[in-house]
């Protein structure tokens, strides 16, 4: 009977030695399913393989591991190729750990790939604020809010759509009054003036959900 760590070593070895794209994908799903923090370095490595199927599996694995994967993801962000960075940011957005705030802000503001700005914008709205020290919450939320209000003017419709989704989620997390009061007018502007009906409709859906409260 193999010990737990020998089993994990075999799963990691299978990822490293797979000899086809499909073989890698399968091995990564198996490694992700082990849900073992010791798999994190390998899963992050896979994000840079230029194999979208494998990256989806590795991202899923990292997201289900959750906050334990955050330090390694943040640490390795810059050491990787562009594709890997994009996947890592997606993972960070999905894990919802507020330690990723600065990275998400920077990405939503300035990344050249719209799919990454899109993921960051949605992620900014859904950070788990309760993980921050109470004294830090308000300024962090203000930064997320300011960034999202800028992102509803992004040139790409899908980033604006994601920013609306982020704002809607943030509105639900913020205490009434104060900052939260900026969200409704921002969404109303989108409904009135955005050139893309899908974005207008998403903003309307967010406003409708406020009305029901």
């Amino acid at each position: 009977m193999a010990s737990p760590s020998a089993e994990l070593a075999a799963l990691i070895n299978a990822v490293e030695t797979a000899d086809s794209k499909a073989g890698i994908v399968q091995a990564v799903w198996a490694l992700a399913a082990a849900n073992d923090p010791r798999a994190i370095p390998t899963l992050i490595e896979v994000l840079g393989y230029n194999n979208p199927g494998a990256a989806v599996a590795a991202t899923e694995g990292l997201v289900s591991l959750g906050e334990v994967a955050v330090p390694a993801l943040l640490e390795q962000l810059d050491g990787h190729n562009y594709g890997a960075r994009a996947w890592a940011i997606r993972a960070l957005a999905l894990i919802q750990d507020p330690r990723a705030l600065n990275v998400l802000v920077e990405t939503a503001r300035g990344d050249f790939a719209l799919s990454v700005r899109r993921a960051a914008a949605k992620g900014l709205g859904t950070l788990n604020w309760s993980k921050l020290p109470e004294a830090a919450v308000e300024s962090a939320q203000t930064e997320a809010l300011t960034t999202l209000i800028e992102a509803v003017a992004d040139p790409e419709w899908v980033v604006r759509y994601a920013a609306v989704v982020g704002l809607a989620a943030l509105a639900a997390a913020l205490p009434p009054g104060g900052n939260a009061d900026q969200i409704r007018p921002a969404l109303e502007t989108v409904v009135k003036h955005d050139s893309v009906p899908a974005v207008q409709a998403r903003a309307q859906m967010a406003l409708d959900s406020f009305a029901q409260k």
Partner: peptide, 21 residues
């Protein structure tokens, strides 16, 4: 839309889109 309000079908499509962002 936007003269009429959002249908439940429109909301369902947007819920699908939200999960793909």
């Amino acid at each position: 839309f936007p003269e009429s309000s959002l249908s439940s079908e429109a909301r369902q499509v947007m819920a699908l889109m939200d999960d793909l962002l």
